[in-house]
């Protein structure tokens, strides 16, 4: 599976949003992305890519676009 698809899958499953609704504009506070869902999202992204994010990155991951940027620091390209 391509990295973009994997990231969409993580977002879709943890936020319970259809994959087609996930785009760069999706940000914290939209739809079901609240503080509780954020931690589930982080766990899902970490599991999908087999990484452990630094705490600052967990806090900074405020949109789908930002998530791609952050994952770039872990050698994951989109």
């Amino acid at each position: 599976m391509e990295n973009l698809e994997k990231l969409k899958k993580a977002f879709s499953e943890s936020l319970e949003i259809p994959p087609e609704d996930i785009n760069d504009a999706l940000s914290y506070g939209n739809k079901s992305w609240d503080s509780v869902a954020h931690l589930a999202l982080v766990a899902s992204v970490e599991t999908e890519f087999d990484i452990m994010l630094a705490s600052d990155d967990v806090i900074d991951m405020s949109s789908f676009l930002k998530a791609k940027e952050i994952l770039g620091k872990y050698g994951i390209s989109f």
Binding site: L39, A40, V42, A43, E46, T47, S55, V58
Partner: peptide
């Protein structure tokens, strides 16, 4: 607690 919880959430 914070980091342990993140591992446990998985």
């Amino acid at each position: 607690l914070q980091l342990a919880a993140r591992l446990m959430m998985r």
